[in-house]
């Protein structure tokens, strides 16, 4: 009888541990087990990604519609090529939509924001955002600002 309660509680403990790991993997790292959730791949070229990371969100109108899967430097154009997966349900992004790299808050995460264009044709799997806006680099901005004011003083 006592052995039984011990076995049950040990079983409960092991289950709780494995379950905790599972929840950590799913809820905390955002791993998706739901592979039926189909996506299509779109890329975009940026002058500067400003430390955008793989797995960053792709957001339209404040709603997450996809994730960044890969970032690499294009050898010929010296631009960053960002690949992302977009939810298949959102298959009506106009060809001239703009992808821009945005920061949540001053120090927050970087993500890709998509603003809608006006074309009738849509971006297909393997297509790319022609219109992009690079990340705003705080240091450059401050530098420009300082330089501008110095130049003003000279005049």
């Amino acid at each position: 009888m006592r052995m039984r309660t011990i076995e049950i509680s040990v079983g409960g403990f092991m289950l709780a541990g494995v379950l905790a790991l599972l929840v950590l993997a799913l809820k905390v790292s955002g791993l998706s087990l739901d592979s039926s959730n189909k996506t299509y791949t779109v890329s975009a070229m940026f002058d500067n990604t400003g430390a955008l990371k793989p797995r960053a969100k792709v957001v339209m109108a404040g709603v997450i519609i996809g994730r960044v899967t890969n970032i690499e430097l294009d050898r010929h154009t010296y631009m960053a090529k960002v690949e992302m997966e977009i939810n298949s349900k959102i298959d009506n992004l106009p060809l001239d939509s703009t992808a821009s790299i945005v920061t949540a808050g001053l120090l927050g995460e970087k993500y890709v924001g998509v603003s809608i264009g006006g074309e009738v044709d849509y971006i297909k799997n393997g297509g790319r955002f022609e219109d992009t806006q690079s990340a705003v680099i705080l240091e450059e901005l401050i530098g420009k600002f300082l330089l501008g004011s110095v130049n003003k003083d000279d005049q």
């Binding site: 950590l24 993997a25 809820k27 905390v28 791993l31 990371k53 960053a56």
Partner: peptide
Amino acid sequence: SMQSSVRLVNDI
């Protein structure tokens, strides 16, 4: 913010 920065293999 948690999900975009926590990586399964590297962190967990």
